[in-house]
């Protein structure tokens, strides 16, 4: 190879499409597909029937205020109680997973694999049916609410344990060293210094878990609920079958979004605030 010759392989090609032209064409094609899809949907859908089936104002009206004061309230209650149980249990399992005692690590690993691998539905049936069968005479406190808290808690603890463990391990090693060199015991350092920072890191994935739980709370219907214990999905379905119209489903769906959308907004705010505080 001689150094004096100029390398021509990087120069713009004279023949065919230039890179710039290719990019513009590709982008144009993507817009075209999008517009075509929207038009196809608008033309092929039967708007009259859709409106009739999903947007009956009078049916929607008769859902209020119960859809909020009863159904949404129950959904929120189920979700929060499950989240609290899952958070506490997940914290314990995460710490077990990081423990220096082998059997604890092993046990936590088994728990996580089992409860992450099973459908939430099976857990609900297990809590609703198997537990009363296996331990006759025992009653889960709180009735349906207690059962939901435990079922949702068992499921979410597995996910949250892994999230919390990752968060703890993401805190720089120097933080533990600084705490230990100030005289903190390992447990004190964990509680006062490491865990608070870990929670800042895992706030977004934890909120994701909250949103997932919010939706999974609909599984409560497999436990069999009274009228007063219905949550959004069950409430919407029941009303849809009595009115032979799907409007209640749509309204119930909007109620879910009413909570989840602001929730993600709040989290984004918190995230950027935490970002400001940490470096």
């Amino acid at each position: 190879m001689t150094d004096t010759e100029t390398d021509t392989s990087l120069q713009p090609k004279k023949k065919g499409l230039t890179r710039r032209r290719k990019r513009a064409l590709s982008r144009g094609a993507q817009y075209a597909v999008f517009v075509a899809a929207v038009i196809a949907f608008a033309v092929s859908a039967d708007w009259g029937r859709l409106k009739n089936q999903f947007a009956q104002a009078d049916i929607a009206q008769q859902m209020f205020p119960d859809v909020i004061t009863l159904a949404l309230k129950n959904t929120v209650l189920y979700t929060l109680s499950g989240f609290v149980v899952g958070l506490v249990l997940g914290m314990v399992i995460a710490l077990m997973r990081l423990s220096s005692v082998g059997p604890y690590r092993w046990l936590a690993g088994v728990y996580i694999e089992i409860f992450r691998g099973l459908p939430a539905l099976l857990i609900f049936i297990f809590v609703g049916v198997a537990v009363p069968l296996a331990f006759p005479g025992t009653e889960i406190p709180g009735g349906t609410y207690g059962k939901v808290a435990i079922a949702l808690g068992l499921v979410s603890a597995a996910y949250m344990a892994e999230t919390i463990r990752a968060g703890i391990q993401a805190v720089p090693k120097g933080q533990l060293e600084a705490a230990r060199s100030l005289g903190f015991s390992p447990a004190r350092a964990m509680v006062s210094i490491i865990v608070p920072q870990a929670f800042r890191i895992i706030l977004p994935p934890l909120t994701n878990e909250l949103v997932l739980l919010f939706k999974d709370s609909s599984l409560v219907l497999f436990l069999g609920v009274t009228l007063e214990e219905r949550e959004l999905s069950k409430f919407g379905r029941d009303l849809a079958s009595t009115t032979a119209n799907s409007t209640p489903i749509l309204v119930a769906g909007l109620c879910y979004l009413l909570v989840t959308v602001p929730l993600s907004f709040v989290v984004r705010r918190m995230e950027s605030k935490a970002q400001e505080a940490i470096r």
Partner: peptide, 20 residues
Amino acid sequence: IDAVRRRIGMVFQQFNLFPH
């Protein structure tokens, strides 16, 4: 060791202040 470390101050290259 925790009691001993209380009497030994340590300053790190990377400061290691608690950011929260």
